[in-house]
């Protein structure tokens, strides 16, 4: 890969606008006080961003609801089946390292064994441009999960905010190609630039308010299976599903056929939540019948099952969104802390 570069902050908009001539460019933007992803053009690029968007960019790869198939039974015998396709090209700029890692986890799930056609099409057409975190939020614990605050992998290009300019590192051929479109916007980074980025990384690492001993928690989790803590921690849950819906790695979905007139329907898929009672409901019984078992499933899935199944990496990015969104203060770092201290 090419040497590290810098781009003047004022020129970043030019860079992204140039890219937007043949693809959709997504950037973080502030709406009603919330940092969200939205399309460049309808939103303006700010000079700097604090924190991480309240939802991850997962939506752009695995939408909350999505049409997958259309059926037409006008001809009863030769039923017409149409598969929806998606070939929109997209650049997402400003993806925090936690979310880059989240996409890596989704890749492992959706692109292994049976390849998920819909995810694969979007993933292939998406260029991921990361933005390192100089200032973690109050609920962040990516440092404990080793997914941040600075990205070491899973990006096409990653930016570091150096104040009046960004340090730019390229991580893939697709990233290189994007940067090469307007090479004169970029200059070679100096040793001082690299040094400053290194200092910012160190400073960021020191400023986490939350720490989880992930290794010990992981080690203790199997023993905690029957512990009272699951009932205690889940007691207040109001089944809103927010923890799942804001999680960058939650990948569960429902498939549902929606009728369109008498002889046609659309097969949709929607995000689903393992915290909802109906998630495991079958005709005769519900195999996960209380909230304690459902909370345990969420934590075990992230910290035990995902690493066991896919290359050892945990399925939690430490982004802290499930803590932030929870209306009754169910706090994964508190739960893991309890487990680790057993």
């Amino acid at each position: 890969m090419s040497a590290t570069r810098i781009i003047d902050k004022k020129k970043l908009a030019d860079f992204l606008e140039t890219l937007s001539s043949d693809c959709e460019v997504i950037i973080p933007t502030v709406e009603d006080g919330n940092l969200l992803f939205s399309e460049l053009g309808s939103s303006k690029l700010e000079d700097s961003f604090k924190g991480r968007p309240i939802v991850s960019p997962k939506e752009y790869l695995f939408p909350q609801k999505e049409k997958i198939l259309a059926f037409d039974t006008t001809d009863k015998v030769n039923v017409d089946i149409k598969a929806y396709t998606n070939d929109k090209k997209r650049v997402i700029w400003g993806i925090r390292p936690c979310d880059l890692h989240g996409i890596k986890t989704l890749d492992a799930i959706y692109l292994s064994d049976f390849v998920d056609t819909y995810y694969q099409a979007r993933r292939k057409n998406t260029i991921m441009m990361g933005l390192n975190c100089n200032e973690p939020c109050e609920t962040c614990f990516c440092n404990s999960c080793q997914t941040g605050p600075f990205a070491s992998e899973a990006y096409d290009v990653v930016f570091t905010d150096l104040g009046d300019k960004y340090l730019v590192k390229v991580g893939s051929d697709a990233g290189q190609e994007a940067v090469d479109k307007i090479p004169n916007l970029f200059a070679e980074a100096t040793n001082d630039d690299e040094k400053k980025a290194g200092e910012l990384e160190e400073k960021s690492k020191q400023s986490f308010q939350r720490k989880v001993d992930v290794d010990v928690a992981k080690q203790n989790l199997p023993e905690s299976w029957d512990d009272a803590l699951w009932a205690e921690e889940s007691e207040m849950c109001i089944l809103c599903g927010g923890c799942n819906f804001t999680c960058p790695t939650c990948h569960c979905f429902n498939i549902e056929d929606v009728q369109c007139g008498e002889k046609a329907s659309i097969r949709m898929r929607y995000w689903d939540s393992c915290q909802l009672g109906g998630f495991t409901q079958m005709a005769a019984e519900n195999t996960r019948e209380n909230q304690a078992a459902r909370l345990r499933q969420r934590i075990f899935h992230k910290y035990i099952y995902t690493p066991d199944k896919y290359d050892g990496a945990i399925g939690c990015t430490g982004c802290g969104r499930c803590i932030e969104v929870c209306p009754v203060n169910i706090d994964i770092t508190h739960i893991l802390g309890r487990v680790a201290s057993k």
Binding site: Y110, H251, F253, I255, T280, Q281, K309
Partner: peptide, 24 residues
Amino acid sequence: MERRMECGLGKCGHCNIGEKYVCK
């Protein structure tokens, strides 16, 4: 094993038990 299933492909998550998907 009987579990709720949607996709049959080890993606939708409903039938997950431990590191296994009952469907797959």
